[in-house]
Structures are given as C-alpha cells and as structure tokens.
Write a protein that binds this DNA or RNA. Structure first.
Lengths: 207, 207
DNA sequence: CATAGTTTTGACCATATGGTCAGAAAAATA
DNA sequence: TATTTTTCTGACCATATGGTCAAAACTATG
C-alpha cells in the first residue's frame, strides 16, 4: 500500500481520489470547523466510504493539515504580487481587487482559514509567525518606502494591510450577513464592494 | 425545580449559577464553535458538574441560544447610538472607535458571533434578517441623507457599514494573526488601529 | 429541630465518532 | 490467463458526548 503521504510515484487513482477527498473536506471543514466536522460527513460529501478515506489519509488531522498547507500558498499569492511600480495607489487598489476576487471565487478557502484563526490558529501558528510574517514585513517595508517618498499619504502599512484583509475577506466569511442585510440588492454585492473599496483606498492613500 | 427558563422569581443561587455557566460557555463556544464545544468543557471551565449545568439549562442548544440572544442586543448597541449630528464625519468616526473598543473589551463575544456567521448563521438567521437588517437600513438611510446633503463624500452607506464591521471586528476575531505579524509591536495594536482607522474613515468621508 | 423545597452528584444510557482490520473486489503486471 | 499489487468495504472497537435519573446534600422556613 502506497499512502498519499509519499508525494512521488502516485498512481492515477491515488491522485484522483486524494483530490476528491480534499474537495469534499474543504466543503465540510469550511462549514463546521475542525472539531465540528466529521469523517462521515466528508465520506458522504465525497461519495467514498469512511475506511476508503482513511486509506488515503492518516486521519482527520492529516486531511485538515493538507488543506491548510495548500491554502496558505494560494492565500498569500495576491500579496506576493504587490510589486514596485510608479503608481503605488493603483498597485494597492489592484491588490484589493485581487483579494476581493478571491473572496468571491474561493469563499470556502476563506472560511477554512477564518475558522482556524478564530479558534486560535492551533495548527497553523508556526506558519503565521513564519511565512506570513516574513511576507507581510517585506510588503509593509515597501509601502513604508512609498510613504517616505511622498508617493502616498503617510499611513501605518501594517494596519493598512490588516484593513485590506478584513474588508475583502468579510465578503466571503460574513456572506450570510451581507446577504441578509442587502436582501434583494445582494446579487451585485461584489461589484458594489469593489467600487466602494477602490474608492475608500484611493481616498486613504492619495494626497 | 424551577428551571432558569422561567425568568420570573429566580433565587439568588439560580441567578448566580446561570451567570457562571453562561460565562464559561461563552469562553468555550467562542473558542471551539457550537459543534466543537462540549458540555464537559463548559463544566470544567465553570467548576460545576455536567448534570448540574443541565439542571439550569435544557441542553447545549439552550445555553448557546441564550448567549446569542443576549449578544445581539449588546452587539447592535454601538450602531444604535449613531445619531444625527452637525458633524457626520465625527459621528461615524466615533462609531468606529466604539466598535473597536468592543473588539478590545469583548473579544469572546465577537468570536462567538463570528463562529455563528461563518458557519452559515443557522441559529440566528432570522434575527439577522429582522433586527439587524432593520437597524442597518435605518442607519444606511441616515448616512445617505448626509451624502445627499453634501456633508460627506458620496459613498455606498451599506458597504461603509460593512467595512466598519470588518475592520473593527478583525482585531478581535483575527487577533492571533495580528499578534503573529506584529510580534513585539503587538502591545499597542489597538491604539495603532484606532489611529489608522480614524485616519482612513476621515479621508474616505471628508470632502 | 423538623420538614419542605432546592441544589448537586455519581452512575448510567444511547448514540456519535475516530479509527482498525481481515478479506473481497478491482486493476496492473507477468 | 495467472499472479501480484492496489483499492475498497462491512463489521467491528474504544472512546467521547449529550443527556437522564434516583438519591444525596444542602438551604430555607415553620
């Protein structure tokens, strides 16, 4: 038996089933959190039997860990692309737009992450203090340079980044609430949000 | 036996124990979510035995329901105080400050709420579409009036409110992440946040 | 103090849940 | 086709969990 843990030499079936399980697990973990999710739910969602799932993964923890480790890479991707440019305001607004698009297109990933963080990030704290902090420090320094050069208004770069995470992820994590409040106007919520946020960050950053 | 459900004629012990249980339950539910929390944990946290807890409440659901119904009132309080005034910008910034203070002083309440919403608000959806929507509609109309009167820049009042909820609650719900990124600078995070947010919303709203 | 009412608990139950295992079914290989 | 390897499953186990109950401990009051 070749466990999915060994990344080399996987058969077609191993690759396919592993994906199906992760897809189902994402749905379940995002909705109920780690402790609230059950392997039976993942089994039901994926159409596989419970023992079959445990044939591919070494347990509930392992499935969750795999999802989280994948997620972090995807999640940091938009921030990585925040590059130097002659127009910092556009650069930041483009980042906001990318991040909002991720909330729209990958709400389950956002909720998986939110569940983990709210509950104290017990299984991802190391990565937060490592990868996430390193990247954020780097980009905060870049933004600080823009401030110092007078290209944008003076602001705290860290809290600017926090506010971007908060405002964009809100549309994935709190979607039920947003829809409840907007009711019939909810359909265009992502377009409205894009316009509002672009407007707000331009006002915040432009001299 | 007089169950806590009957709000009238409670003895001193009933009032005290009920509070102790709710206090412990808030801690546990906020950390693990509804499905992840166990009555045993609440028992341990409160120093009471499990059967004793079930003597005061009709089950896990009932404890959670009680917490949620209390919470909603407290939670909407800051928004209710968003009143008419000759300086709308100050008015909104004061609301932001109040909301941020709540994240600092009542992080568990914020997380309890966040857990519920992220998981689809199964036990509070009615209240969201009722109380929350009504109040938000009312305040959005007020803000719209300020826009129309030219007292603040034209913005979408609903998404302004969403952004305030998102940015302020972020400091309670994602506190672990904020601290991980700020590391040694984390101590003053709420003061920094207050300054940043005040600055951002003034820029967004002032002509 | 005696009695009635309230509060608390240990022991217990039914179900849910994470996980195991021997062997069957299917697929790859010789 | 025969054999080896991979994939899959029903039955099962140990523990965790929500909840019950009879009786004990405690408290207030006549």
């Amino acid at each position: 038996m070749a466990r999915a843990a060994s990344t080399k030499g996987q058969t077609r079936i191993q690759r396919e089933k592993t994906e199906e399980i992760l897809e189902a697990a994402l749905e379940v973990f995002a909705t109920y959190g780690f402790r609230g999710a059950t392997i039976d739910q993942i089994a039901l969602q994926s159409g596989l039997s419970k023992p079959n799932i445990l044939y591919y993964f070494d347990g509930k923890e392992a499935i969750h860990a795999k999802l989280l480790s994948r997620l972090l890479t995807t999640w940091l991707e938009p921030l990585k692309h925040l590059g130097d440019s002659d127009n910092p305001v556009d650069e930041i607004c483009a980042y906001v737009a990318r991040k909002l698009a991720m909330s729209r297109d990958y709400p389950r990933e956002s909720r998986l992450f939110a569940n983990e963080i709210i509950q104290g990030a017990p299984r991802i704290l190391t990565e937060l203090k490592g990868q996430l902090k390193t990247l954020t420090d780097e980009k905060a320094a870049l933004i600080q340079n823009w401030c110092d050069a007078g290209l944008i208004k003076p602001i705290d770069p860290y809290h600017l980044i926090f506010s971007i995470w908060a405002t964009t992820q809100h549309y994935a994590d709190f979607d039920v609430q947003v829809c409840a409040v907007l009711s019939d106007k909810a359909d265009s919520r992502f377009d409205q949000a894009a316009a509002f946020l672009d407007n707000m960050y331009r006002a915040t950053l432009t001299h």
